[in-house]
Structure formats: C-alpha cells, structure tokens
Amino acid sequence: MTPLQQAFQRTLDTLDTIILGKRDLLQLAQACLLARGHLLIEGLPGVGKTTLAHALAQCCGLEFRRVQFTSDMLPADLIGVTVYERSSEHFRFHPGPLFSQLLLADEINRASPKTQSALLEAMEEHQVSVDGSTHELPQPFFVIATQNPLQQIGTYPLPESQLDRFLIRVELGYPDAAAERQLLQGISRREALHSLASVVSPAELANAQQAVRQVHASAALLDYIQALVAATRQLQDVAYGLSPRAALGLLNVARAYAWQYGRDLVLPEDVQQVFPGVANHRMLLRTTGQPAHGVAEQLLQRVAVP
C-alpha cells in the first residue's frame, strides 16, 4: 500500500468515527469521490446525510458549501448574479454557492426542475455560462446531493437523464442498535465535525484520482462488466438497462474500490461491491417509473463470474 492509499484509509477511519457503523457506505462515497463522480444520498431526515457530506469535505480539506433546495429557488441563487458596481462602473459577476469544491445540494428533489437542471448541467460540464461569459468551476468539483424518499409531499422526482449524472446513489438507513447507543452516549456530532482535522489535502486527492485511473482492468473483468450491463438490458420489469456511461462509471468506481484496498488490478468482487450503488438508481421500473430497489443485487446472483 502506498502512502497515498494509507492516507485515504486513515480518512476512512476518521469518517467512521463520525458516521457510526456505516463503513461500507463511507467507502463507497469515498470511491465515488476518487472516481470523480457525484454522489446522491437518499434517506429520511435526520439519519446523517448532511453530516456525511460535511465530514467528507473536512477530511479531504475541501472548500465546503451547502445549499438548501426549496421549491421557489432559482438557478441564479445557485450560480450567482451579475451586479453593476458603481465604483468601477462595470458589471461584476458574484459567484454563487456553486463555486465551491464540495457542494452539498440538500433535498435536491424539493427544487423545481429548472433549478435542478442548472445544477446538473454544471455537474456534467464543470463550467457555467452566465451572460455570455464562461466561468470555470474550481477543481476538484464534487457534488453530494441528498434526496428525501420520493413518496414525500412537495417533491419533484429527478428524471432518469439527471439520475444518470450521479455516479452512485447510496441509501442511508437507520443505524443499528449498537451504533445508535454509541451515538447517544458520545459527544455531539457537530462539535466532533468542527474538531476534525483534514487528513488529505486537495492536491493529494488529485493525485489519488490520477492513480485510480491507472488501476488495471483485464479483458476478463471487462467481460464481466459487459455481461452485467447486458443483463440489465434484458430484464423484463425494467424500462431501460444501463447506458454505456453507466458501464464506464461502473468500471471507474470499481477501480477506485480496488485502489482503496491497495490493489493495482480490479477484481470481480470490486464490481460486485459497487454494482448496486451504480445500477439501482438507473434502472427505472416499468410499472411505477421509480428507481429499482434490490434488482441489481438479484442480477449479481444470476450473472456468473467468468
């Protein structure tokens, strides 16, 4: 294991002290960051979605902003506005909260589709265009969006094209009994967050992202990924299978996962670990039009490892 990998392992350990009993999930979130993807967290209010995002930003020393999405929010509230400045007699662009290294888009499905798409466009292009001038977003640029369960009142569900922009969706459920007891006994999470020192620097993160790309994926592994993706396209209950972008994403996250374990090659097991996170929210059920739950896990049971 290289020092860089060890540093990220320590990051994970630190995060584990904040979000208790969810190490798999944390590792997945970190893999998403390493694979330069965006993360969608789904869960009930109060299970620690915001804390997770905040802690991740702190550990990696990223500049962190949080935007609470509401139904009357406009794209300008996110991107920023151009204001006339009397002193310099010029229009000046005041960047909005989007211009940060780690953006927490809280309750993204409460905003109107217009605002949602402004954010999602920025996520894909890594730049925004306002009044004819293009503004580059900072590097790295990482969005963590949280979303309430779709059945709740006053939500605008994300269309499938926008769900596809999120590399990984994780579901943050209730903690188990032991973790919850520890939570009740321990100090306030907010205080702990503040006292959290950064473990890796943004520069190290960029290096790590570079290293992840070098992880070797053999022909046999690509066969397996293709078999999985092909299987999603044959499902009867699912409207559309995974896109090629999703397949590429799956490979990248699997690489990040392997890298986290200090390996320089991807194993089918890595793919299996990340597949539900990558695939489930992209497969909309034919019956309800809602993202599937558990379909990816069933697929893993069926598709043989070559």
Binding site: L300, Q301, A304, V305
Partner: peptide
C-alpha cells in the same frame, strides 16, 4: 457459486 469471484 457461479456468481462468486475468485477472491471471495
């Protein structure tokens, strides 16, 4: 198991 990777 047919769906089991070598390491697992």
């Amino acid at each position: 198991h047919p769906n089991e990777g070598p390491d697992a």
